[in-house]
């Protein structure tokens, strides 16, 4: 494992009016690492995620991708730089097929403009062929190739999650951000998911994920951040975090 930090959040604070959803959060993801964010409901995990991916601009603090300050950049600019996310409540494009959903993922890496498209230039044609090929490869990897012409939302729930991963992968990211990838999955599906995430890491991706399934988090993450009331109360390897008294208190309450 190399030590190169690819994502760094520095003293990130997000306020919504009087509510402080995230407070002075620091976070780092290194290359080829699987990092988890855990915490009770309402701890600010998703907000921090939204800060990183550009959905919200943090009230204070900075976010760096490699050495570039990406604070306040828009989601589509950030995706272009090499970060891709999935959503807690699946957000696929219902009027598009599975294949088209994944092809859309390649969008940020292609360039054809309106005139290219209208005059069918060589560049546009070549790009379109490459996009199709790439999307099909990804669908074979995630096991959705057979269903490629079905409408995205006609798939069973578990496959819809796979499709979200596929779409995120299509943008050729360096860093993948998964928001509760195991939500709604049974034990067998969760096992498959953890194999899949390991496979992604071996393929060279770095992964940051929010998850409630403790078994999954503890078994796959290299490091874990624990959020409570918007603050990072602990971070470290799964074993350290599990035995940290602050964490136990946040989850189970204080011993009398």
């Amino acid at each position: 494992m190399s030590n190169e930090v690819i994502l760094r959040a520095k003293q990130v604070t997000q306020r919504f009016g009087g509510l402080c959803a995230v407070h002075n959060a620091d976070l780092e993801v290194r290359k080829h690492e699987i990092v988890g964010i855990i915490g009770p409901n309402g701890a600010g995990k998703s907000t921090l995620f939204n800060n990183i991916t550009g959905m919200y601009k943090p009230t204070e603090g900075q976010i760096y991708f490699h050495d570039m300050d990406i604070t306040g950049k828009t989601p589509y600019e950030i995706t272009k730089l090499g970060m891709a996310r999935t959503f807690q409540n699946i957000r696929l494009f219902p009027t598009m097929t599975v294949l088209e959903n994944v092809m859309l993922g390649v969008h940020s890496k292609t360039k054809a403009n309106l005139l290219d498209v209208i005059f069918k230039t060589k560049r546009a044609k070549k790009e379109e062929e490459e996009t199709l090929k790439k999307a099909e490869e990804i669908l074979k990897l995630t096991g959705l190739y057979e269903a490629r012409y079905n409408y995205a939302t006609s798939l069973p729930y578990g496959y819809q999650r796979h499709l979200e991963f596929s779409r995120a992968l299509a943008s050729s990211p360096e860093l993948l951000l998964f928001d509760e990838p195991a939500a709604g999955m049974n034990e067998r599906e969760t096992k498959e998911l953890s194999d899949f995430i390991f496979k992604l890491r071996d393929m060279g991706y770095s992964i940051l994920l929010i998850e409630h399934d403790m078994k999954l988090v503890m078994s796959i993450c290299d490091r874990i951040y624990v959020l409570d009331h918007g603050e990072v109360i602990a971070n470290g390897e799964p074993e350290e975090v599990r035995n940290n008294p602050d964490v136990i208190e946040a989850y189970l309450g204080k011993e009398e």
Partner: peptide, 24 residues
């Protein structure tokens, strides 16, 4: 039937997801 058409449909379907996938 192009990259642009897919972008357009994606924005129509869900503009938040579209922007997370690199579409402005």
């Amino acid at each position: 039937n192009s990259r642009i058409g897919r972008g357009v449909l994606a924005v129509k379907d869900d503009d938040i997801a579209a922007s997370a996938m690199g579409v402005n």
